[in-house]
C-alpha cells in the first residue's frame, strides 16, 4: 500500500510534439501532492504518464524513468495493465459506466478483472462506498443506474470505483472542476481521509484547493508559447504559498500572470 514515486528525466511526446520536458520529482507515500500551473503546461500529461495512460492517446510516448518503490513503470516487460491496477485514476468529469448500476460501477474494476464471489464483492463495494463517503446516500439504491446520481455523487462514485481495486497510488485530474462548492468540500474531505491509505496526486486549477488539501505542491509552467511544459519547482505546500524560491511561482500564485 501507498508507494513512493520517483520520477527522473521524464519527457513525454504526442507524436512529434514534445509536451513535457525532462521532469524529475519525488512523490512521498501517504501524502497529497498537488500540481498547479497554467492551462496547457503539461500537468495532466505528466499525471497520465504516472499510470501509463498517456500512451492510450494515439502517438503518445514517453522517455525517462518512473520508479514505483524501485520498480520502473516503463521498464522492459512491464504490462501497462498491471501498472494501472496499482496506480488508479479519477478523471476531470465524472464518468460512471452508463450501462451499470451503482453497485456494478464500484464492482466493475474487480469484476472486469475476474472476481466473481458475490459475498466478497458485497464487502468490497460497501467498504469502497464508505471510503468514498457515499454509502449512506446510496445504500438503498445500489441497483439504480449510476448516472442518476448528482455530479458530486457521481464523482465520489468514481473515486469509490478507483479505490475498490486497492491501488497504491491515486491520481486525480482536476476532480472538482465540474462540481459545486459543497460537493467539492465533500471530495476534499475525502482526499484528506484517503491519504492515510494511499499516495495521492491531484491536478488542480484552484490554488486554494491546493493549499487546503496538499502536503506538497509542484508548480508547472511553459518556458514560452509552443515550448514543452516543465517543472518550475516542488516544495512543501506551505513554503510554495508563503515563500517560494522561484519568482515565477510567486507571480502565478499571487495572480500576476497566467
Amino acid at each position: 500500500m501507498a508507494k513512493r514515486i520517483d520520477v527522473s528525466g521524464l519527457t513525454a511526446y504526442y507524436g512529434t510534439h514534445k509536451a513535457i520536458d525532462d521532469i524529475s520529482m519525488t512523490i512521498e507515500p501517504r501524502s497529497v501532492t498537488a500540481f498547479i500551473g497554467p492551462s496547457g503546461c503539461g500537468k495532466s500529461t505528466f499525471l497520465r504518464t504516472l499510470n501509463r495512460m498517456h500512451e492510450v492517446t494515439p502517438g503518445g510516448r514517453v522517455e525517462g524513468k518512473v520508479l514505483l518503490d524501485d520498480e520502473d513503470l516503463y521498464g522492459p516487460g512491464v504490462d501497462p495493465v498491471s501498472v494501472r491496477r496499482e496506480v488508479g485514476m479519477v478523471f476531470q468529469r465524472p464518468n460512471p459506466f452508463p450501462t451499470m448500476s451503482i453497485f456494478d460501477n464500484v464492482a466493475a474494476g474487480l469484476r472486469l478483472n475476474g472476481m466473481r464471489r458475490k459475498s466478497e464483492l458485497d464487502d468490497i463495494v460497501e467498504k469502497s462506498l464508505r471510503g468514498a463517503n457515499l454509502w449512506n446516500e446510496v445504500k438503498d439504491r445500489l441497483n439504480r443506474p449510476g448516472s442518476g446520481l448528482s455530479g458530486g455523487q457521481q464523482q465520489r462514485l468514481c473515486i469509490a470505483r478507483a479505490i475498490a481495486v486497492e491501488p497504491d497510488v491515486l491520481l486525480m485530474d482536476e476532480p472538482c472542476s465540474a462540481l459545486d462548492p459543497i460537493s467539492t468540500l465533500a471530495v476534499e474531505d475525502l482526499i484528506g481521509e484517503l491519504k492515510e491509505r494511499f499516495t495521492i496526486v491531484i491536478v488542480t486549477h484552484n490554488m486554494q484547493q491546493a493549499a487546503r488539501v496538499s502536503d506538497r505542491t509542484a508548480f508547472f509552467n511553459l518556458a514560452a508559447v509552443g515550448q514543452p511544459g516543465r517543472l518550475v519547482e516542488i516544495d512543501d505546500t506551505e513554503r510554495i504559498f508563503s515563500n517560494p524560491s522561484v519568482q515565477a511561482t510567486e507571480d502565478y500564485i499571487s495572480g500576476r500572470f497566467g
Binding site: V81, G88, G109, L112
Partner: peptide, 8 residues
C-alpha cells in the same frame, strides 16, 4: 479511459 485506468 475510466475502464483502462482501473487496470482492465
Amino acid at each position: 479511459e475510466a475502464s483502462l485506468a482501473l487496470g482492465v
